[in-house]
Nucleic acid binder design. Structure first.
Length: 569
RNA sequence: UGUCCGAUGGUGUAAUUGGCAACACGUCUGAUUUUGGUUCAGAAGAGUCCAGGUUCGAGACCUGGUCGGACAACCA
């Protein structure tokens, strides 16, 4: 699918970059970076950032975007996440500059710089316990107090820091801190941590290190090492920027590229949660079936749900880039996928809740192969043959014995069109002892075949039903999905009494997954492969699941068609 | 009683940098339709958080408020 026409409207970041280019900042060089921590799967919020950072390098001539794994915390990170992140970025249609980068590649340089800061009296080893240090930090409205270890000699600091590196001290017993200003109104400048001791094997550096750099120390310096020009991140890092700049002030070479951090607001979607911690919780507690559960807002979940890369890119585009808080309505996401799939997904017939329909005046044992258009929105999509016979399945909800004039479907005595086939008239129905309808009987008009050109075929009937030949139908399992949470803002509701935030899992939608077996689909579907998107005519968009086999077909519902009838009823 | 950031229809985003508040989603009509889909035509819905000020003219600039968000992890 084509990307929507790029309008000339520039968001504030693109405008800023355009201006920088005009003033020849950094000699016209542009290098961006996408810096995920490999501690979870990427979600739709990351997709926004990916589309920004990698999109920028596609839009500006000669620009590039690095992929850098911010792997400074071996306690949480894992190779599995590295792999999934690479896969998701590529699936979205983006390429990074050269090989993927890792913050852990810079551990030696970072260590050397830390030593330099110590030698200049700008960093010190603090021996206090975490809670003591925390209490000395002060609060946002009250200044902190200096650590008693703040004025240690350079020699002692050097020796202790080396000891930390050598593994001579216990985890949590010492940290290296920058010596800035414990009374600074910006809390991030109150002697922030540079290093802590973590005696865990790192997924890349193994046992080489037992001290690991903190985010603030590692991030900006990694940008600097790579020669990043524009370091784009979300607004919660805005208050970190003075610290980002402080480090560069101490270390950066005047004739090297100095990166600049710019913040934009993160994406929020209603009816879901977007924090990696909470998503991990859903996975670990088995609330969902893994990171790629189609109900998850993860990129892998959306992929398995049937979303396409183009739809997500277009979604990111309509959502835009600003600094203000936002909560995107899921209808925007759903629109993006419908718009794409409407143009690209082949139409097929599938009956989700089948009931037998017998055509009394149709010849026993006869099969006709009727032509069916693959996609009326795509002239080049061609057509296929679908089998028609005396006994069919139709959707149970498409029949009522009698109904008012607004019911455009099958009733006794009224005519409807069977899509791509004949006009039929409801005659009678069979019920079991409980009064449930078990079989419907009808008659057909042999002269009304679709596309035959006869007067009878041109007759206007109000309703058209999808169907599938009972003899030729293939069984399938279908997963129907609804929103994972029944509340718009599951992670920010507060108890009116206690003012405590209510656990987000309270709002889980118990009906978010409905599995239906015994669906009947047209035989042509057997030839398709996992990941293929379809429109089940009149029902919605579906994707062949990765676990599907020709013998046990499984479809996932991506999204329903717009349904102006259901809305009124 | 801090620092930083933000505020435009229900939602998201614009407004050529001071000149009739526009676009998309959503909602509602109607037309078309062998998908109650698509498409097409149209409608309703904000006077731009508030109060002052500058100006012929302010969503935009200035001042002061109000409201919302971020920040006190040996997380990122």
């Amino acid at each position: 699918m084509e990307e929507k026409n790029t309008e000339k409207r520039l968001d504030f970041i693109r405008e800023k970059i355009t201006n920088e280019l005009a003033s020849n900042k950094n000699g016209g060089k542009l290098l961006f970076r996408f810096p995920p921590e490999p501690n979870g799967y990427l979600h739709i919020g990351h997709a926004k950032s990916i589309c920004l950072n990698f999109g920028l390098s596609q839009e500006f001539e000669g620009a590039g975007t690095n992929l850098r794994f911010d792997d400074t915390n071996p306690a949480k990170e894992d190779q599995e996440y590295v792999d999934s992140i690479k896969r998701d970025i590529e699936w979205l249609g983006f390429n990074w500059e050269g090989e993927p980068k890792f913050t852990s590649d810079y551990f030696d340089q970072l260590y050397d710089w830390a030593v330099k800061l110590i030698k200049e009296g700008k960093a010190y080893v603090d021996d206090q316990a975490a809670d003591v240090i925390a209490s000395q930090k002060g609060t946002p409205t009250t200044p902190g107090t200096n650590s008693p270890f703040r004025e240690r000699s350079v020699e002692e600091n050097l020796e202790l820091f080396e000891g930390m590196k050598e593994g001579k001290f216990e985890e949590g017993s010492r940290v290296l801190r920058a010596k800035i200003d414990m009374a600074n109104p910006n809390m991030h400048l109150r002697d922030p941590f540079l290093y802590r001791i973590i005696k865990k094997a790192h997924h890349r550096t193994g046992d080489k290190w037992c001290i690991y750099p903190m985010y603030d120390w590692a991030h900006g310096q990694s940008d600097y090492i790579e020669g990043i020009t524009n370091s784009l991140c979300t607004t919660e890092f805005e208050v970190h920027r003075p610290l980002y700049d402080w480090f560069l002030d101490q270390l950066a070479d005047a004739d090297k590229t100095r990166p600049e951090q710019t913040e934009f607001s993160r994406l929020n979607l209603n009816y879901t949660v977007m924090s990696k911690r909470k998503l991990l919780q859903l996975v670990e507690e088995g609330v969902v079936n893994g990171w790629d559960d189609p109900r998850m807002p993860t990129i892998s979940g959306l992929r398995r749900r049937g979303y396409t890369p183009a739809s997500i890119r277009n979604f990111a585009k309509t959502v835009g880039i600003t600094k203000r808080d936002n909560i995107i309505d899921v209808s925007l996401l759903e629109y993006a996928i419908r718009e794409d799939l409407n143009k690209t997904a082949p139409r097929v017939m599938a009956v989700l809740d089948p009931i037998k329909l017998v055509i009394d005046n149709y010849e026993e044992g006869k099969t006709e192969w009727l032509e069916a258009e693959n996609n009326p929105e795509d002239e080049n999509s061609g057509s296929r043959q679908v089998p028609f016979s005396k006994e069919l399945y139709i959707e149970r909800e498409d029949f009522k014995e009698s109904a008012n004039r607004k019911f455009f479907r099958l009733t006794i005595g009224k005519e409807v069109r069977l899509k791509n086939a004949y006009i039929i008239k409801g005659e009678s129905c069979v019920k079991d002892e409980d009064g449930n309808i078990t079989e419907i009987h009808c008659t057909y008009d042999p002269l009304s075949r679709s596309g035959s050109g006869t007067e009878e075929s041109k007759r206007k009937v109000k309703g058209t039903l999808h169907w599938v030949s009972a003899e030729h139908a293939v069984d399938a399992k279908v997963n129907l999905y609804d929103r994972l949470f029944s509340d718009e803002a599951p992670d920010s509701r507060k108890d009116p009494e206690t003012k405590e935030v209510i656990d987000f899992k309270t709002f889980l939608n118990p009906e978010s997954l409905q599995v239906i077996e015994g669906c009947k689909v047209e035989p042509s579907l057997k030839d398709n492969k996992a990941g293929d998107n379809f429109q089940f005519q009149r029902m919605g968009y579906f994707i062949l699941d990765q676990d599907s086999t020709p013998e046990n077909m499984i479809f996932n519902k991506t999204v329903g068609l717009r349904d102006s009838w259901a809305k009124k009823n």
